[in-house]
Amino acid sequence: MNDKDKANPSLDGAEVPTVLLLPGWLNSDAAHWQSRWEVLHGHRRVDQDDWLWPRRGDWMARLDEVLLDSPNGARLVAHSLGCQLVAAWAAHSRHTARVAAALLVAPPDTEREDMPPNLFNWRPIVRERLPFASLVVASTDDPYCALPRAERMAADWGAAIIEIGSRGHISGESGLGDWPEGMALLRGLTGEAG
């Protein structure tokens, strides 16, 4: 099976949307479940020009570009600032119909006073309802977002929310490995078998 087949498995002969991985600030390292999914499942990472000083508009334009290059549309799998990217992008893009669903893992509270200046241009948080199925995955001890704030974002976005206990920022440091539970959440969100 080649990478394209892994990224777009056939269900009854029909191509399914590509999985686009949207890392957060500073990108996802090799231990991160997103990086592991990229290797294991052939999912496509959306690379950004500037991971250190992320500009919201630039990141939105890049997502539009990659999405238009995905002939079968996409399922978005966002981590951290990638979640804020999905919300901001969906509020402005004319291509939201190309998205089947979004898994939004550990959205950060970019409006907190202790956020680094690199993320100030991600304020205010875009809180419009998402026009596609979405699920927020939150931890009870995320250092970048208190659980009630994650719950508020999910409600504003019209997303379901699942709390997975004490898992920090649900990143490479959370001990998730390949995170098969997260893959099951994505499959459940998009109605995939397996």
Rank of each mutant, 00 (worst) to 15 (best):
L67A: 06
L11T: 12
E113Y: 14
E192D: 15
I164L: 00
L104V: 07
R129H: 14
P143L: 05
W122A: 00
A101T: 04
R149T: 14
P131K: 06
L185P: 12
C83P: 06
A133T: 06
E65K: 15
L103T: 05
D69S: 01
A14V: 15
P54Q: 03
N8L: 14
P117A: 07
E192W: 11
R75I: 00
G168T: 00
D109P: 05
G188R: 02
A155S: 08
S10H: 12
L40M: 12
R112K: 10
V77S: 10
P124C: 06
D156I: 01
L81V: 01
P107D: 13
P124T: 01
R149M: 10
P108S: 04
H79Y: 09
L67D: 11
L63Y: 13
P9N: 05
L85F: 04
L40P: 08
D141K: 00
P148S: 07
T140N: 04
A91I: 14
A154D: 11
D50Q: 06
W25C: 11
D69A: 07
G82I: 02
A184P: 04
K4R: 13
L185T: 01
S166G: 07
P9D: 08
L85W: 02
P23K: 10
T110R: 03
R127L: 05
G191I: 00
W89Q: 00
L186W: 01
I161S: 06
L26F: 13
W122E: 03
P180E: 13
A160S: 09
D109I: 01
W25M: 12
L135G: 01
L85C: 06
V77E: 03
W37S: 08
P143C: 03
N121I: 05
L40E: 14
S134G: 03
L85Q: 05
T110A: 04
W59D: 11
A146S: 05
E163D: 11
A155E: 13
G177A: 10
P108W: 04
S10C: 12
S10F: 12
D29K: 09
S139C: 02
W51G: 02
S10Q: 14
W25V: 14
T190M: 11
A30K: 13
D47V: 15
A146M: 06
P124S: 09
M60N: 13
M153L: 07
V66H: 05
P124A: 08
V66N: 01
V105L: 00
G42L: 12
R149E: 10
A31G: 09
N121K: 01
D58W: 09
W89Y: 09
W157H: 03
P124K: 02
R127D: 04
L68I: 09
R123N: 01
V105S: 13
A88C: 05
A30N: 07
S139D: 06
E163C: 03
S174Q: 10
L11A: 14
L67F: 01
E111P: 04
E15T: 15
